[in-house]
Design a protein around this nucleic acid. Structure first.
Length: 830
RNA sequence: GCCCGGGUGGUGAAAUUGGUAGACACGCAAGACUUAAAAUCUUGUUGCCGUAAGGCAGUGCCGGUUCGAGCCCGGCCCCGGGCACCA
């Protein structure tokens, strides 16, 4: 039988990977402790919601995290790479209703399934630290921490708006409102006010903003988004006195503006539909009452509000202009948010486009108070549109006429201050964090409500307040509200009859501190222990860009509160951040909403984890969103089998492989060796600094192409190949750990897990000849090679003598010659 | 609507500091091997003109800066993420 050259039956990824994974497990290869002489490195990928099956979005996220962890291990770090489960949340309730099962049961079976898939993917997790946020041992400390915040005055209760389904009589998440209707009942959703718990994240607004400047390891775009979200502004808070006091509103309307310079152009006030003035006005007007009711239809989401047609109605109430005393009518407007600021704004239609359109629509006065032409600009024409720029000077503003923005701002602020009707103030767009959810599958809020003592924190000794497990749901709100045996209790203060909170926490509470708990996951005497101080901050955090604001901001806030409690020492939870783009399928974001699509299992069964990991890393740079295609997995498998495995197999049959003798190498041997060391240098930079893993793979593929073409079976030729293959194996090992482990053990003595990243031989990188190009007027006209140490003059001369160049220069005058050494020569002619 | 990104061949992409656009792959085409197919190997592959050498055009659109722009600036179009109860 003829020898089949490329038949290398020994590469069987599925069984090889299983053996190596067992080896890791039996040896506890990835279990770490604080007792290490090596520098610590904490690598963390945002933990998953256990939705059931893995999808390719998970594969991307967790493979990226694993690649970074494995690269840092090669760098000699003591690497913590933990995993757990963000186990509370809405999908479990939905599934529970749909399948008539308990959320806990559904969740735990999903965890078991996903855990199995994670192990098949060969992630280097320290599984001994695993936990799920629905474990009472976990959320116990969240409850404990909330009671610390309660005692510090960092939490408070206030009324807030929710989506109310009047048919199912339940609160709906924004996601459950489809086109203004409940997703199950199809009923028109109403806004309803409920008393809820808030955490004072605004107390930390300034630090959350300022510390962004210190986060050098965060992408600029994420920091920009957070800055804008926090939204610091400088302005004036002022009061427009009322002619007569109004019920619940007092004797003035408070507004905040960043443009106090335009105060003389304020021609009306606009209040939210939920503002006390609007409510008071509605008592005397059924038309207004109808309008307010209209405003309370639809979803509470800001995006929906912003897209609504801007509508308003006169309340009939009149305020006084704080400086002129003139009448200022008060209108209700559906675009004013009660949650933001005081729920009232002053309207300057001459210099705000939204106010301008509103004023046009309802026939309100439009007064110009800023004029750019006096400042050299073009004259503003507020008959056409509002003039919104700060450039110009004040007009129609009495004693303030002629002042520029800054002088007008200060002058008017001072005038208000003198009348005790206003003060300069720094304002933040950031709102306090509402943490109450009217849901069952969440962490119970550890508060007891007593008629005599009010809201009382559950004492430490009574924690955790355990969520009753194994409840089934019927879709009509939280079952906790129907369980007197659970919510009826005694007041911890007075011992009298009291009622537990039946609301649970926003699941962002769990994800705001889990990273710290991984350091102390088996500690039962407190939230965290000293180990958390060793491991935090997370050195590299990896996760979807969709978490750029909420999760990352809440976690930063929690970390600072934990620091102020002395539980951790650093100021920020995540030193470096990799924000991933989405994995799309058929143009849709891959996530729990995509159901089972994109399950990698059949690919793992057929091609193995290394091929899946490699295909995913090769597909696109981490920050790009891209459409997943399975094609790449087969081609990755082919490369691993036909190129890498085959080349090593062939090499192992060479019997004369001496140590490298660098001094004796031929030019072609030096050439290949130069490529090896160039690739090592580039890969190290791509892994460590650029986080560009797709180019690690392409440069390794390119190197392998050169190894294939290198036909030299002399002893030193073999030695160069040996070095090259080892380099390829080590470079690829963070991405394809199994095949790298296997091949390295075949080629070398010792244990692969003791291997460290390769050092670059600088002398191997030296080039004697470089390729340069010739341009004429910036257009490419020729190429040449020249000694790397040639002078500029020599480069220019060589460029002139390149064939084809002369015909673009002849009969013209060379005005300028630009020489970029070792790159190009550009002749500028005319 | 507001905030933040992105747009490069048939496809995923590369081009790291303003300096050779399309590396590395996928796909496709042709060829080799085979009774045949698969697998594998070789060659080609941005478009147009040309046997070739080479030329012209080209990085969403319009304009600008520069010796030189995928990259910088101004204006627009389209796509994606977030908008506080999806996680």
């Amino acid at each position: 039988m003829a020898e089949q050259k490329y038949d290398t039956p020994k590469y069987d990824p599925v069984s090889t990977e299983r053996d190596i994974q067992r080896y890791w497990e039996e040896n506890g290869t990835f279990e770490v402790s604080e007792n290490s002489a090596r520098p610590k490195f904490y690598c963390l990928a945002m933990f998953p919601y256990p939705s059931g099956q893995l999808h390719m979005g998970h594969v991307r996220n967790f493979t990226l995290g694993d690649v970074i962890a494995r690269f840092q291990r090669l760098q000699g770090k003591n690497v913590l790479n933990p995993i757990g489960w963000d186990a509370f949340g809405l999908p479990a309730e939905n599934a529970a209703i749909k399948h008539n099962t308990a959320p806990a049961k559904w969740t735990h079976s999903n965890i078991a399934n996903m855990k199995k898939q994670f192990k098949t993917l060969g992630y280097s997790y320290d599984w001994s630290r695993e936990f799920a946020t629905c474990d009472p041992e976990y959320y116990r400390w969240e409850q404990w921490f909330f009671t610390r915040m309660f005692n510090k005055g960092l939490v408070y209760k206030k009324a807030a708006w929710v989506n109310w389904d009047p048919v199912d009589k339940t609160v709906l998440a924004n996601e459950q409102v489809i086109n203004g209707r409940g997703w199950r009942s199809d009923a028109l959703v109403e806004r309803r006010e409920l008393s809820q718990w808030f955490v004072k994240i605004t107390d930390y607004a300034e630090e959350l903003l300022n510390n962004l400047d210190k986060l050098d390891g965060w992408p600029e775009k994420i920091k920009t988004m957070q800055r804008n979200w926090i939204g610091r502004s400088e302005g004036v808070e002022m009061t427009f006195p009322l002619h007569a006091a109004i019920k619940d509103a007092g004797d003035g309307v408070t507004v905040y503006t960043t443009r106090p310079d335009t105060l003389m152009g304020a021609t009306y006030l606009a209040v939210a539909a939920q503002h006390p003035i609007a409510r008071a006005a509605a008592e005397n007007s059924s038309k207004l009452a109808d309008f307010l009711q209209q405003c309370n239809k639809g979803k509470v989401a800001e995006a929906d509000m912003a897209k609504m047609e801007k509508l308003g109605m006169d309340t009939g109430f009149i305020a006084e202009h704080p400086l002129t005393g003139k009448d200022v009518p008060i209108w209700v407007a559906n675009f004013v948010l009660m949650e933001y600021g005081s729920g009232a704004v002053m309207s300057v239609p001459g210099h705000d486009q939204r106010d301008w359109e509103f004023a046009k629509k309802y026939g309100l006065d439009i007064v110009q108070v800023v004029e750019p032409s006096a400042d050299g600009g073009e004259s503003a024409n507020i008959a056409v549109e509002a003039y919104v720029s700060k450039k110009g000077v004040l007009v129609n503003s009495g004693e303030f006429d002629g002042l520029d923005f800054k002088a007008g701002f200060d002058g008017i602020a001072d005038a208000l201050s003198a009348r005790h009707l206003g003060e300069k103030r720094v304002n933040y767009r950031l709102r306090d964090w509402g943490v109450s959810r009217q849901r069952y599958w969440g962490c119970p809020i550890p508060i007891v409500n007593c008629d005599k003592c009010g809201a009382v924190a559950v004492p430490d000794a009574d924690l955790p307040v355990v969520l009753p497990p194994d409840l089934e749901l019927d879709g009509s709100g939280s079952p906790l509200k129907k369980m007197p045996e659970w919510y009826e209790t005694q007041c911890p203060d007075c011992g009298g009859k009291a009622i537990r909170e039946t609301d649970t926490f926003d699941t962002f509470m769990e994800s705001s501190w889990y990273y710290a708990r991984f350091a102390s996951s088996n500690f039962n005497e407190g939230m965290l222990d000293e180990r958390a101080k060793y491991w935090t901050s997370v050195d590299h955090y990896v996760g979807g860009e969709e978490h750029a604001i909420l999760h990352l901001l809440y976690a930063r806030f929690f970390h600072k509160v934990m620091r102020d409690e002395g539980i951790v020492e650093s100021d920020e939870p995540f030193t470096r951040l990799l924000a991933l783009g989405m994995v799309l399928q058929d143009g849709v974001k891959m996530s729990k909403s995509a159901g089972d699509s994109g399950d990698p299992q059949h690919l793992l069964d057929r091609y193995g984890a290394d091929a899946v990991r490699m295909a995913m890393m090769f597909a696109a740079p981490p920050e790009h969103s891209f459409e997943w295609s399975e094609h790449g997995v087969e081609s990755a498998n082919r490369w691993l089998r036909n190129r890498l495995w085959h080349a090593v197999d062939e090499h192992l049959q060479r019997d004369n492989v001496p140590d490298l003798d660098v001094a004796s190498l031929s030019d072609t041997q030096k050439e290949l060796r130069r490529r090896v060391h160039e690739t090592v240098a580039k890969a190290g930079d791509d892994y460590g600094r650029r986080l560009s893993f797709n180019t690690v793979i392409s440069s390794v593929m390119s190197l392998m192409n050169h190894v294939d073409k290198f036909k030299d079976d002399s002893p030193q030729g073999n030695a160069v190949i040996h070095e090259a293959l080892n380099a390829v194996i080590v470079i690829m090992s963070p991405i394809t750990p199994h095949i790298s482990h296997e091949l390295w053990q075949k080629m070398n003595e010792g244990k692969f897990e003791d291997v460290e990243w390769l050092s670059v031989d600088e002398s191997a990188l030296a080039k004697t000849v470089v390729a340069m190009v010739v341009q004429v007027n910036g257009k490419l006209r020729g190429k040449f090679e020249i000694a790397a140490d040639a002078s500029r003059d020599e480069m220019e001369k060589a460029a002139l003598s390149v064939e084809n160049v002369d015909k673009f220069i002849e009969n013209k005058t060379v005005r300028k010659v630009i020489v970029v050494p070792n790159k190009l020569v550009n002749f500028v002619v005319s």
